[in-house]
Design a binder for these strands. Structure first.
Length: 354
DNA sequence: AACCCGGGGAT
DNA sequence: ATCCCAGGGTT
């Protein structure tokens, strides 16, 4: 069963796999690494333009390591999971500082880099160095759960161990790069999450889930998604063509991105009445201002949160003294990274203010 | 072990 | 709405 699996998978790859990606088949560990970080929990189509931008702007790890953090974050803007960006930059500097600019070539060393876990270490080790480590990503979990009929939840510790051992046992040690590439492509193209192409699948004859009609039930996941709602009211305070922003530093969404003066409310309010709230008065207590306008509400759906944002535009009558905020000329806002909901606001010309 | 972290496409 | 995407880090 295992031998059939590996043989058929490699045959499918050779005969039917037409999936193409710019990083596929390359051997430069730096570019492989960039692609892997960008693609963590991110679809290939979404990550593709970012990969092109990063490899163009930073063709080597030395270029990336020397880049200003703000510039790198700006390039990452819109891709999400911003800790990846922070860790990527840290890893680039690790490589330059402690590995003499030479990308580490062993699985053990690779996994010491920031932002590289079991999956990414195996991917780089196999793709760049043909090292015999099986990748275990969402595709692999799904393909193996179905083909072998495994009901162990993939989001449990026991499941991760079981699937990791199975994946490793299937890996032909001298073909780790092509095998790892094949199983992920196969999961993305044939053994898809919804409506997999079982009738064209070269593995279906021995696929447990197919034979038992359990394809839709596998893989098993236990965690349930809880989505909380949050209500953000942003004060866009201007003084002499400068706008007040700050970097988010809390353990919360959008860490290291920038924002305007935020007042978060426990529930929705009428933005026209924001001035009456204590939180607003505390921020604006000795700043004379006039209201220039109030934006429509922006809604952003994240995986675990729904964010409702509204922007109140104020002009200060004298220079505001605001701790923790910096005054930035409007024309220079584009050198800072913002969350999607704020870039949406900045691009909304209906208010005529930006 | 449980929880947190974005944005977007498909259904 | 719900799921899931070339997952990793923190608590």
């Amino acid at each position: 069963m295992k031998k059939f699996f590996t043989e058929q998978l490699l045959a499918w790859n050779q005969e039917q796999n037409t999936r193409t990606m710019p990083w596929k088949g390359i051997k430069d560990p730096y570019k492989i690494w960039l692609s892997e970080i960008i693609l963590q929990q991110t679809r290939v189509e979404q990550g593709l333009p970012y990969y092109e931008q990063f490899t163009t702007a930073y063709p080597t790890v030395q270029h990336l390591a020397a880049a200003p953090e703000e510039e790198v974050f700006r390039m990452w803007q819109g891709l999400g999971y911003y800790a990846r960006c922070k860790n990527m930059l840290a890893a680039a500097r690790q490589i330059v500082d402690t590995f003499q600019g030479q990308y580490p070539d062993t699985h053990e060393q690779i996994q010491t880099l920031k932002g590289i876990g079991p999956y990414t270490a195996a991917a780089i080790a196999s793709f760049a160095f043909n090292s015999p480590h099986a990748v275990l990503d969402g595709n692999v979990f799904r393909v193996l759960a179905r083909y072998f009929g495994i009901h162990t939840p993939v989001d449990s510790t026991a499941g991760k161990k079981e699937f990791a051992a199975l994946a490793q046992s299937l890996l032909p040690a001298n073909q780790s790069a092509v095998y790892n590439q094949s199983i992920m492509d196969f999961g993305a193209v044939v053994c898809k999450p919804q409506q997999p192409a079982c009738l064209q699948c070269p593995l279906s004859a021995k696929c447990v889930a197919f034979k038992q009609q359990l394809v839709a039930q596998l893989p098993v996941k236990t965690k349930k998604l809880v989505i909380k709602k949050r209500y953000f009211y942003y004060i866009v305070l201007e003084y002499k063509d400068q706008v007040y922003i700050r970097k988010r530093t809390e353990n919360d969404i959008w860490q290291n991105l920038h924002e305007f003066i935020l007042i978060e409310m426990p529930g929705p309010i009428n933005a026209n009445e924001l001035e009456a709230y204590t939180a607003f008065k505390e921020v604006m207590h000795n700043i004379p201002y006039t209201v220039q306008g109030i934006s429509p509400a922006f809604k952003q759906q994240l995986t675990h949160q729904t964010i409702y944002s509204q922007f109140i535009l104020l002009t200060a009558a004298k220079a505001p003294e605001l701790a923790h905020y910096m005054a930035v000329p409007r024309a220079r806002l584009n050198s800072y990274a913002f969350p999607k909901t704020i870039t949406d606001f900045l691009q909304n010309k209906s208010l005529g203010l930006f």
